[in-house]
Amino acid sequence: MASLLRRLVDWARSRSPWMIHYCAACGAVEFPPLVMSPLDWERYGYMPVPSPRQADFVAGMGYLTRKTVKLMINLFRQTPNPKFVVAGCNCTATGGLYWDSYATYKRLDDFFTVSGWVPGCMPMPDDWTALITDLRRQIYEGLKGDKLKDAEEFIARVEEGERKWREEYFAKPQPPVNYAFKETYPECEERYERVKLCVTSVRRERLKTALAELKEKGFVLLSNIDAVDYPKNGVIELYYFVENKDDSSQVALKTFVPRSEPEIESVHDLYPNALFIEREVYEMMGVVFKGHPELRKWILDGNWEGPPPLRKDVDTATYVVKTFYGGDKYGR
């Protein structure tokens, strides 16, 4: 009798698994075709629900950035039992194309037990259907819910190691500056007609005045700031791309800062969006923008604790292989 009741419950459960509506990564882009036209999910009893409290399963939809994983653990905790984890996409399973990315965890089963995997980069809607259909079958057959593994400890260990690396990195002496630089502003030193780009160099002391002058001339849009690291020369080159509002021609102002003292004036009062681009360059390259009101981590916050990852002498690939793949580049 009791077993009959349990089978009835399992049957009922398997009829309508609901998923947490959380578009965790790029795999989520194949969900609208699945949920709406042409596959119309709801006729099978599946549904994306906004709250984890109503959900039955969590889907890993692609690369697991570290920040997302913390959130997924949180969501999983809030989901009522029995709860299930399924995984689509390759990055969820092995790291996939992003095997050397410093900001992702490589395997979902480091954190949860997982009930089904569908490979693909990315899986098509049909494949997601197959995944959930099989989950249904498993629930019907009496699958017990998935569990959280001892994840916090792993995360804490990784982040602790990175913090130590950061300290060591900044304690190292910087190479001396050995770099030829000639100021050419306002003449172009390189000109690319087709993309309407003119590259010119200016010393960092004069950068802000040069930008102010350009802005007067109609270059009102700050397109981007690029930073290129040259450890051999002991400098970081900076390119400020500004764009003219009338004919969309661009000027790239090239300047440099020594690696021993990577400081430059912030230009956010001239270009409001510099506030965010500078913040990004700061965290990725370790260039300090003087006068910036809020110079702290932004995109890397929660993703990476180590030294500025885009510096050339920060070898993140080796680090990742060592930490997440146990030293084997092809390992799972």
Binding site: T94, D109, W117, P119, D126, D127, Q138, R332
Partner: peptide, 15 residues
């Protein structure tokens, strides 16, 4: 052969 044809409950089978 993609996706659902490769579906698996045990991911070591796809190596």
């Amino acid at each position: 052969v993609t996706g659902f044809e490769l579906y698996t409950r045990d991911k070591s089978t796809t190596l």
